[in-house]
Simulated scan of single mutants.
Amino acid sequence: MRLILLGPPGAGKGTQSARIVEQHGLPQLSTGDMLRAAVAAGTPVGLKAKDVMASGGLVSDEIVVGIVADRIEEPDARGGFILDGFPRTVPQAEALDRMLAEKGIGLDAVIELKVDENALVDRIAKRVADTLARGEPVRKDDNPEAFKTRLVAYRELTAPLSEYYAKKGLLRVLDGMQPIDQVTAEIARILQPQPA
């Protein structure tokens, strides 16, 4: 099972990814984590990324796709994976499709969590309060202004992925404003093997 979860920041992708990991034993592949691991391991792609990151630049789509390509070859990802934070743009999705096609594999589903953006601001405030109550540090981007900036970037860059994957017949849209357990149940229904 190879999945992508889409949705704006705060939509619940992290929560649902963790539940899919727990239920299906799939690794959640975060491009940020993979970049750092590839740099630390000194892989050829990691060395390219290190140079770009050291100069303060953004890592190219080619490098990110290379890191994803290397990571999905590892034993824990051979049976499937959840992509987290990638693709973020249609060109990245196209590059991902080419790389997967070269490996003879494809995506099984792209699940989009649709949410009310105004309600997301309240959700982020609650997340901050819960994090502080647990005595944990709050993410730098968990404040209303930074969050609104992230929403604008999502709308401009990432939202077009919905149409891209809908045209491929892969997109499944869920109401991300439902209770967490309800969203989990709907995702579980989507991921159930379909009768042949």
Rank of each mutant, 00 (worst) to 15 (best):
A95T: 02
P91H: 06
Q178L: 15
I4S: 14
L83F: 11
P160I: 01
Q192C: 09
L29Y: 10
L132N: 04
Y154W: 02
A133G: 00
A153V: 13
V183T: 06
P195L: 10
A69L: 06
E74F: 08
H24E: 07
Q23A: 15
E117Y: 15
L120T: 13
D97M: 09
A196G: 11
A69Q: 13
P8N: 13
A188E: 15
P87S: 08
V45G: 03
D175G: 13
G176M: 13
L191R: 00
R189A: 15
A125N: 04
I180H: 09
G42P: 11
K148C: 11
E62P: 10
R155F: 06
G32Q: 10
I63K: 00
A41R: 13
V90M: 09
P160E: 00
E94A: 04
A125I: 02
V45E: 01
F147G: 03
P91T: 13
L174F: 05
D108K: 03
E102I: 05
T184W: 05
D130R: 01
D76S: 11
A129E: 14
L47E: 11
Q192L: 09
A185L: 02
D116R: 07
V39G: 07
M177N: 14
E136W: 04
K148M: 08
S162V: 15
G169N: 06
R172A: 11
A188P: 11
G80H: 10
S30T: 05
G10Q: 05
L151Y: 08
E145S: 12
L171W: 00
L3G: 07
P195V: 12
T31M: 14
L174E: 01
R155N: 10
R98L: 13
A125L: 03
K114N: 09
A133Q: 00
Q194V: 10
T89L: 02
G25Y: 10
G169V: 07
R88Q: 06
D122N: 15
D108E: 08
L151G: 07
V183Q: 03
T131M: 01
G66N: 06
T149A: 12
V128F: 04
N118V: 12
K126W: 11
I67M: 03
V173E: 12
G56S: 15
R2I: 06
L83W: 07
Y165I: 02
L100R: 00
K114A: 15
I105N: 01
D33H: 15
M1E: 07
K103H: 09
K13M: 13
V52L: 15
Q192H: 12
K13R: 12
E94W: 01
L3T: 01
T31A: 15
P8D: 09
E112R: 04
V52C: 09
D108F: 02
V138W: 00
I20K: 02
R189V: 13
A49Y: 06
A166V: 01
F147A: 08
L58D: 15
L3C: 07
V90Y: 04
P91F: 05
H24N: 13
P8V: 10
T131R: 02
R134E: 11
P179N: 05
L170G: 03
G25F: 11
Y154A: 09
L100T: 02
Q92E: 00
L174V: 02
K50Y: 05
Y164C: 03
R134F: 01
V64Y: 10
R150L: 09
G57A: 14
F81W: 06
G56L: 15
H24F: 12
K48F: 06
